[in-house]
């Protein structure tokens, strides 16, 4: 029996989101597309939040997006973050429409970030997972 590592966060693992994490481990960011109404979204759901059809299909994102907003944590809200502050958390809107919570690499304190900045996917291995982070296209 393994001892849970309380200093490291984890994700919920289920059949609905397995394709999302599997794609990231293969170097791709996928989002869901509704075959009934065409709506596109994240995070993973069984049903389309627009038309409620149970007919979603995973599609690869271009990896391009825009910065919607960001914050810089100076306080660590969990023990595993104590040696990471300051770090940023950002909202990114993918070119295909879905929005997600992410990090902008290379700008831990948010210097040089601005709303509407063009960003591109930069998958990073962290906490034993392949995480969908972004970098500024201008970097």
């Amino acid at each position: 029996m393994s001892i849970p590592d309380v200093t490291r966060p984890d994700i919920t693992r289920n059949a609905t989101n397995a394709p999302y994490w599997s794609a990231l481990s293969q170097g791709r960011l996928d989002f869901q597309h509704c075959r009934a109404c065409g709506h596109q979204w994240l995070p993973a759901r069984e049903n389309c939040p627009n038309c409620l059809a149970a007919d979603p299909q995973w599609q690869p994102a271009s990896g391009r997006g825009k910065l919607v907003s960001w914050v810089v944590y100076h306080k660590a809200y969990a023990p595993h973050l104590e040696d990471r502050v300051p770090y940023n958390v950002a909202i990114v809107e993918l070119a295909e429409g879905p929005r997600m919570i992410s990090n902008i690499i290379g700008h831990p304190e948010g210097q040089g970030l601005y709303i509407g900045a063009d960003v591109e996917l930069a998958i990073a291995r962290d906490f034993g997972l392949d995480l969908p982070r972004f970098r500024l296209q201008s970097d």
Partner: peptide, 9 residues
């Protein structure tokens, strides 16, 4: 939620 993996607390 799962976004905590990105430091979202």
């Amino acid at each position: 939620g799962d976004d905590a993996i990105m430091g979202w607390y």
